[in-house]
């Protein structure tokens, strides 16, 4: 499957330490995280525990603490950290020309799955 990059927003739209949400027609909402260290990550906006909106959690280092029950999720792998088990799907993201791009093919493939 080849990537289908779509530009979603300007890098400045999400301040470091915060996340932005991107609803997707026909698939689950995506959360884009901007870490305080400056990295960008995209994940399905759903905690592997009970579906909490990860975009609303506190971002620290390269992880986010879920707002519902405080599971810590790795932004890079989507895996729950510490003792917890579970994984949120990650979405390919790239930063180019001051914009954030997501791979729509990967997002849509999940909707079909």
């Amino acid at each position: 499957m080849s990537a289908d990059w779509v530009s979603v927003c300007a890098v400045g739209a999400i301040e470091p330490g915060m996340a932005g949400t991107v609803p997707v027609e026909g698939a689950e909402e995506i959360a884009i995280f901007h870490t305080i260290g400056g990295a960008f990550y995209a994940l399905v906006n759903k905690c592997p525990h009970k579906g909490g909106p990860l975009s609303q959690g506190i971002v620290h280092g390269d992880s986010v603490s879920c707002p519902l029950h405080n599971w810590r999720i790795s932004l890079q792998s989507g895996e729950a950290l510490g003792g917890d088990k579970g994984c949120t799907p990650t979405i390919p993201l790239k930063v180019e020309d001051g914009m954030i791009w997501l791979d729509r093919a990967a997002i849509m493939a999940r909707a079909g799955a």
Binding site: V6, S7, C9, A13, G20, V22, E25, R104, I107
Partner: peptide, 26 residues
């Protein structure tokens, strides 16, 4: 307002029309 809005939106259309314009930076 950034905390209450989405940063973008992805539609299911073909690649070219699927791209929504960038929203205002925060």
């Amino acid at each position: 307002a950034d905390l209450h809005s989405h940063v973008g939106r992805i539609t299911a259309g073909p690649p070219a029309d699927g791209i929504l314009k960038a929203m205002e930076p925060a």
